[in-house]
Design a protein around this nucleic acid. Structure first.
Length: 557
RNA sequence: GCGCCAGUAGCUCAGUGGAUUAGAGCACCAGACUUCGGAUCUGGGGGUCGGGGGUUCAAAUCCUCCCUGGCGCGCCA
């Protein structure tokens, strides 16, 4: 790939200039290669000379001149190298190299842009992991879109990725208990009994729906039970039902998991108490106020936290430490969790716990995505499940479709708040950028169909003389195709899947521009074959990107 | 009070040290096709990058103080 080749060549040029005595010795800076905003500044540009200049006290343009003199570029890579402005070195890729790239995309197909930076290491990506107390909400859809895209990005950069959803089904969980009590109240109400939803229960109407279904399926069979027995039965029923619904919600969104991890298994297998035992033995705990505490402050947290409550029940933190130990013990080289904004306060203590129990914190990353705020017109919709007005992901999918929802969730960086106007998204579905990208795909498919109808066959395309490609719009499209590998590795490395939606839009725009100015099917059979080859390459790359972001690639719209 | 995130064009957002004019989409205005899909393309207007100070050859980007908004701060999850 040109980027890597240029960085290598520049770095070599610097050391050669130094050993030849043309430049004073100085700490070698990392070569910063950027793609200039202004295309007149070339395809790639580096500020290396300015950095070296400031370290050595030489004039930047003179340093740039020296570097270029020592530069030994691979044959056919660059058309021109020049020094500009205060001391930038600009590179223009040669058309020859770009034509070779088209050939390469066609040869590699779906594998184009893969890299092996992960070297087959195993990554466990945990995301969504909603509490089993209601349907998947819109904000968790954002986590689903992010996690799925990130998983694909890591897969394309050489990692073996496992996707995991953790179900917090531990029976000592207050939330689970409160939910069972809520369902009990709704159930009794359905049967005409006096009952009230607990103060801190779940106000959402979906619990009423669940109670209705429960009555329809099981009648009044829970009525005669003792309260403890009834709550236990309802807990089991609601866990099973809600998890099944969550699985369906995620599947409808096109997000699938390798593992639905049941938190309760950590308790069944005694892993939580073993984890606490390990922490005790390592001296990272102490007793106070009748509870057992983790010395999180010894690992960079601002305060210590309780592991075992006064009444002997472990806290969520204890369970989470055991859970992450379990993940590492399954042999994963690296863990990434994607959490919602309401868990931001847990990042430090969880990292502290994982470190305390003996794992290298650099192998464990917690990514926090920000909230999704829903608007109906100008009115903001509250999303707390506990307040009752939960907006389920399934409703959003019905409104705008899974493709638009996924694209939208990935359009901005995860640390930005996302304002989603339901009315707007519904009313102007045709304006959604996802259609712009999908249209480019459908358009290419249409050209290829038309070509087939006219009897232009694909073997001709692979034999095409790509030297016929040289129009500005053709070169622009080739350059955009050349960007994919770098875009993918940047998006993965920086945990920024939103780069892919931007790239998708740019690629579509570049294609639409090409389409407008360069007629593909014409009487010139050689040119037709060459352009078909380019179009085929664009199709390949577009499909790769749409696959990564989890949006369908329709052949007709 | 403390912590995290955000504040960039009318709106939604990119851009985390680089190039006289800070980008994109939407919206608005003006244009483009007798041939491969007009869900397209071309051009235009529109911004004291929340504010002050600092570091640097170079700051939307780094440091610092302040302002505004969101989220979190439990022996809940």
């Amino acid at each position: 790939m040109p980027r890597e080749l240029l960085i290598q060549a520049l770095s070599d040029a610097l050391s050669q200039a130094q050993s030849a005595g043309d430049l004073p010795e100085s700490p070698s800076p990392e070569v910063d290669l950027q793609t200039p905003r202004d295309p007149r500044h070339g395809d790639f540009s580096t500020s290396l000379a300015m950095v070296v200049a400031s370290e050595t006290g030489r004039p930047p343009r003179e340093v740039a001149d020296t570097l270029v003199r020592h530069l030994d570029l691979p044959e056919g890579l660059a058309e021109s190298v020049n020094i500009a402005g205060p001391g930038f070195i600009n590179f223009v890729l040669s058309p020859t190299w770009l034509r070779r790239l088209v050939r390469r995309v066609l040869e590699e197909g779906e594998d184009y842009g893969r890299s092996d930076t992960g070297r087959g290491q195993r990554l466990l990506l945990e995301f969504v992991s909603a509490n089993p107390t209601g349907p998947i909400a819109v904000v968790q859809g954002r986590a689903g879109a992010l996690g799925d895209a990130l998983a694909r990005l890591f897969e394309r950069t050489g990692w073996i990725v496992s996707r995991e959803y953790c179900v917090n089904d531990a029976l000592n969980s207050t939330r689970v208990q409160r939910f069972a009590e809520t369902l009990e109240a709704r159930y009794l109400q359905q049967l005409g009994r006096q009952a009230a939803v607990p103060e801190d229960g779940y106000q959402g109407d979906y619990v009423i729906d669940m109670a209705e279904q429960l009555v329809a399926a099981e009648g009044d069979k829970y009525l005669g039970m003792a309260r403890d027995e009834r709550l236990a039965a309802l807990t089991e029923y609601s866990l099973q039902k809600i998890v099944a619904d969550q699985q369906r919600d995620m599947a409808d969104f096109g997000v699938t998991f390798d593992t639905w991890f049941m938190e309760s298994t950590l308790y069944d297998d005694d892993e939580v108490s073993q984890a606490v035992e390990t922490l005790n033995a390592a001296g990272h705990t102490y007793e106070a106020d009748g509870a057992l505490w983790l010395k999180a402050t010894a690992f960079g947290d601002e305060q210590d936290h309780v592991l075992i409550r006064k009444d002997g029940r472990p806290t969520y933190l204890a369970g989470d430490i055991a859970y992450h130990k379990n993940k590492f013990d399954r042999g994963f080289d690296r863990l990434i969790d994607i959490w919602g904004p309401d868990h931001q306060g847990h990042v430090r203590r969880t990292r502290a716990g994982v470190q305390a129990i003996g794992y290298d914190p650099s192998r464990f990353e917690i990514l926090i995505h920000q909230i999704v705020r829903l608007f109906r017109g100008s009115e903001m919709v509250r999303m707390s499940k506990r307040a009752g007005d939960i907006v389920p992901l399934s409703g959003l999918i019905e409104d705008v479709g899974a493709d638009a929802a996924r694209f939208f969730f990935l359009m901005q960086s995860m640390e930005s708040h996302l304002d989603f106007d339901l009315e707007l998204a519904k009313k102007r579905a045709a304006d959604n950028p996802v259609y712009y990208v999908q249209y480019a795909h459908a358009r290419i498919c249409s050209i290829l169909r038309e070509a087939a109808d006219r009897g232009v066959s694909l073997p001709n395309i692979s034999d095409a003389d790509l030297d016929r490609l040289g129009e500005p719009d053709e070169l622009a499209l080739m350059r955009k195709l050349a960007d994919l590998p770098h875009e993918v590795s940047e998006a993965a490395q920086r945990y920024e899947p939103h780069r892919m939606t931007r790239y998708a839009r740019e690629l579509a725009a570049t294609f639409h521009g090409f389409y407008t100015n360069c007629r593909v099917l014409s009487d010139d059979t050689e040119l037709t074959a060459a352009r078909l080859a380019l179009v085929q390459a664009a199709l390949t790359v577009l499909r790769i990107v749409l696959t990564i972001i989890g949006v369908s690639a329709p052949e007709k719209m």
